[in-house]
């Protein structure tokens, strides 16, 4: 959804349109310089990861899934991803104080 709560555009029909929407997304959400990739119009990667509307995963150095987050939006938990990343990198896992 757009910043004002309204949907911005309907499903982009072409990869070109997707690229445009993705670029705006990265800007509006201030995600740069995090690298962004755009899925195919058939959402093949999204489907392979059952990732709609949002989801977090961590792929280990061994190319295997190290962490699979719950399906979004309720399962989307950056804290869990952080813990998983720490685990993969051999860093101490800290319990967040909240």
């Amino acid at each position: 959804m757009g910043g004002d709560g309204m949907p911005i555009v309907e499903d982009p029909l072409s990869l070109e349109e997707r690229n445009g929407v993705a670029a705006v997304c990265m800007t509006k959400l201030e995600l740069e310089p995090m690298p962004a990739l755009v899925d195919d119009v058939d959402d093949s990667v999204n489907k392979a990861y059952a990732a709609w509307p949002d989801r977090l995963y961590l792929v280990g150095k061994d190319g295997k899934i190290a962490y699979r987050g719950g399906p979004g939006p309720f399962g989307f938990d950056p804290d869990e991803l952080e813990t998983a990343i720490r685990g993969e990198l051999g860093l101490p896992v800290e319990v967040p104080e909240e």
Partner: peptide
């Protein structure tokens, strides 16, 4: 700093949660 970075994949719809991930690539 050591290793790993985050790749954001843009699919098609809904709420942009990714902005709040506290992973710094």
């Amino acid at each position: 700093a050591a290793a790993g970075f985050a790749v954001a994949l843009a699919g098609c719809r809904a709420e942009p949660n990714a902005v709040e991930a506290e992973v710094e690539p």
